[in-house]
Amino acid sequence: MYSIIRSIWLTFLHAFHKRETVLYPEEKPYLPPRYRGRIILSRDPDGKERCVACNLCAAACPVDCISLQSAEDDDGRRYPEFFRINFSRCIFCGFCEEACPTYAIQLIPDFEMGEYNRQNMVYEKEHLLIDGQGKYHGYNYYRQAGVDMGVKGKGEGENEEPPVDIKSLLT
């Protein structure tokens, strides 16, 4: 008997508490930077596309909603010829971001993606690519990789010796 009255009392008290709900959409809630919302493709500090079209995000995607094709520019730099995410299938699990070796694909705190027409949920590269670096600043994959794809010469990357002179026996 006592516990029932206590419960009613406590519930009643909530009527005078500060409200947890907000009046969305007039009032927007705070979402932390690592909130898993809409997916974007970011650029590296030089302003070039970070995505190297390695296909790891597509492979990691549990609902297989990412599709892309790699291409190469004149320097041999890899980029996605097209990059498509079918958001009507996406479950915002963030596996793609985890799989991405270049910080290109990122989930951002934006969830307002409702559409009347399901076809509009299919995002192509032009809808995904932003002009900034997103959450992770200062990283340029091609400076870490061994390949020479127009960003740096052979042996000019971070943690690289100059190329071996194979004609020398001693050094």
């Binding site: 297989d64 599709s67 892309l68």
Partner: peptide
């Protein structure tokens, strides 16, 4: 088994 993009490969033509 790891084939990717099943639900996106032809989504630009029709999302169904």
């Amino acid at each position: 088994l790891r084939f990717s993009g099943r639900t996106a490969n032809s989504a630009h033509i029709a999302v169904n």
